[in-house]
């Protein structure tokens, strides 16, 4: 799992560096396009992802205290918070596409769609993993001695959080 996460971070890292370098070359255009994004939406997305990660981390502590059912409920809460992210992000995508700010609009939005879209796919995969782990936890599949798969799944979810923590200021805030 660690090597997979490092590989993922390397890919996101290249995209973030590409975004930053391109912004240096088209500073005015990026500033104008970034102003078209809603920062409060970005903040809402951030809080929903961080809250989901918080619930997932709590779930691991519950398994280690042999509270498998509580862990399942916490994982479901993590799924719920992540679903909120998906709904808000989908609405933002829909709004931007309707306004004509699609992937071909300009360089900023080309990189915006690629970067956030790639991250969005990771969120969707994380949702499936969290849901699967919630089901397994409810059935008592994880114990303090046998929770490595749970830890790996939650670790992946924190990686998705970690990437967003750097994406959020780059895409929404640093104008």
């Amino acid at each position: 799992m660690w090597f997979f996460i490092l590989a993922e971070l390397a890919v996101f890292g290249l995209l973030i560096v590409a975004f930053s370098v391109t912004e240096s070359l088209h500073a005015e255009a990026f500033r104008a396009s970034r102003a078209l994004l809603d920062t409060s939406t970005g903040l809402t997305l951030t809080l929903s992802l961080l809250t989901s990660g918080f619930f997932a981390a709590l779930a691991v502590t519950q398994v280690k205290q042999q509270q498998s059912r509580q862990a399942a409920l916490l994982l479901l809460a993590a799924v719920g918070s992540a679903l909120f992210y998906v709904v808000i992000k989908f609405r933002e995508y829909n709004h931007l596409a309707y306004a004509g700010l699609d992937i071909e609009y300009d360089t900023f939005f080309t990189l915006y769609w690629i970067l956030t879209g790639f991250h969005f796919l990771h969120v969707l995969l994380g949702l499936v993993i969290l849901g699967f782990m919630a089901m397994r936890a409810w059935r008592g599949a994880y114990t303090p001695a046998h929770c490595r798969n749970l830890e790996s799944g939650v670790l992946y979810w924190h990686m998705v959080d970690l990437v967003w923590v750097m994406l959020f200021p780059l895409v929404y805030v640093l104008n």
Partner: peptide
């Protein structure tokens, strides 16, 4: 990883 990212973003920001 976040340190390298912050450096890349920061360098580009301050260069601008």
């Amino acid at each position: 990883w976040p340190v390298v990212m912050a450096l890349a973003i920061g360098l580009a920001f301050f260069w601008r």
